[in-house]
Design a protein around this nucleic acid. Structure first.
Length: 173
DNA sequence: TGAATGATGCACT
DNA sequence: GTGCATCATTCAC
């Protein structure tokens, strides 16, 4: 169990930073479907990124879960991290850093492409969203790792972080 | 403290 | 064949 403390929004086919910018493909087609479904993809050949599909059917959009603050199951996350690259360090890592990045969220929670299409709003689902404490202060900054995108998409402040969380993917910004 | 780089597999042109 | 919605390590300062 973890608290989501950092996300990024990708919305519409005209968002030139989004996987949906070229229209529906085999990989991104879930983004065009109904909201509340998981969109999981492999990035850089090593890491799985978890997204929550949003918006009405036909409008491609998703929210990338970029960082999570562990709440329960820290030992499980630590064990899961050992599977990945640099996993030897998971033993001494502070709990707050176990899922402090999109690739690390996938690793710590054992998310793979078999979780693609999971219904995140179903309470029976192994991978699901639950209601939690609202963030006190949210800070918006430009999205990360989308250098291929032209302006204005490159600079749109569509990365949202819980101010002061020790589990953000980047301590600054 | 920060920049450069390799790992690694698959979607897409 | 090219290029990633990344991360850990290495190297320079």
């Amino acid at each position: 169990v973890g608290r989501i403390v950092e996300v990024e929004a990708y919305i519409g086919q005209d968002d030139l930073a989004s996987h949906a910018r070229f229209g529906p493909t085999a990989r991104n087609r879930v983004m065009f479907g109904p909201a509340g479904i998981a969109y999981v993809y492999l990035v850089y050949g090593m890491y799985h990124c978890l997204n929550v599909v949003t918006e009405a059917e036909g409008t491609p959009a998703a929210v990338l879960i970029r960082a999570v603050e562990p709440v329960e199951g820290e030992p499980l996350m630590r064990a899961a991290r050992k599977i990945g690259r640099g996993g030897g360090r998971a033993r001494t890592l502070p709990a707050t850093r176990l899922a402090a990045g999109p690739g690390l969220v996938g690793l710590a929670f054992g998310i793979t492409r078999s979780d693609n299409l999971a219904d995140l709003c179903d309470s029976e689902s192994a991978l699901r969203l639950e209601c939690g404490e609202p963030a006190h202060t949210v800070v918006a900054t430009p999205r990360i790792g989308i250098g291929y995108a032209p302006e204005p998409w490159l600079s749109h402040p569509w990365r949202f972080t819980v101010a002061g969380s020790p589990s953000l993917s980047r301590v600054r910004g």
